[in-house]
Amino acid sequence: MKLIGMISIFWLFIVLVYGTSDFSAWGDPESPCNLHVSNYYIEHAMSDTSVPNIVTAILADYRGFDTMFETAVIFSAGIACFFLLRRPKYDAPEAVVFRHIQTGITLRIEKGGRLPKESDEFERIDTQWVPYDLVIQVTSRILVPFIQLFALYVVAHGHHSPGGGFQGGVIFGAAIILFAVSNTLRKTTHRVSEKRSAVLCAIGVLIYAGTGVCCLLAGGNFLDYSALSGLLGVDPVTARSHGIMMVEMGVGLAVTMVMIWIYYNLSSAGKQHEGL
């Protein structure tokens, strides 16, 4: 197998390198892919949409239909992970471990045993318990709000600098994943439950599609934001800029929640009672 793979890959390499001889030189402004439609985008993005970052303008306005289905793909990937891994609730764990905080004694309660009442004296811990590292917990607790603030800045400032819904959403999801890694998965699911993340990521896709339907109802084409100018009370060019903002927020919400959702299912192998 190793030899066959090596030989076939070597031949493919030779053929592909031979194929590059027909390519235009690297960095050539006159190459075919740098002509035609992309020049229109560069020259008209500012006058059409008043968004200086051309990438954002194309992503959410000129090719908005494309991006809508990319968001739908990400949403369906989250659902696929859920259906592949999630175990039902009644599949109760073998044993639950509690720790008495003052004395440090751990209690192991087998399946069917009586669990201690909710109180400050006992806390539930993972079966493979590692003592909490104070440095990691405190540092990440300080870091998380700043990462979230930066993520919101990235979404809001995507018109004028690199950034946008996809990047900001991933950073926001990474902040919550950092919290889940430094603390326990249970603490995180207590704050952002799985049901909430699933509903919110569907709402994110819905915001995107709903913006398009609003344009349709206002008399324009699907995702033609200039039709919203009457609704928002601004001129058509600014309306397109605002429409891009609405769409980016939907994308950000969907991406954030899908990242968290996939992480919950992957790190706990679908059981969701103890994680990384």
């Binding site: 892919c33 740098n34 439609v37 992309s38 985008y41 560069i42 051309i54 990438v55 194309i58 992503l59 090719r63 494309d66 991006t67 990319e70 793909v73 990400i74 990937a77 989250g78 996809f166 991933v170 991406v255 899908v258 990242m259 996939i262």
Partner: peptide, 18 residues
């Protein structure tokens, strides 16, 4: 040219989902 950047930006996020 910004067009390949747009196509690839969405491809990266889809790649992490896959």
């Amino acid at each position: 040219n910004p067009l390949p950047h747009v196509l690839m930006l969405t491809a990266i996020v889809v790649s992490v989902a896959t």
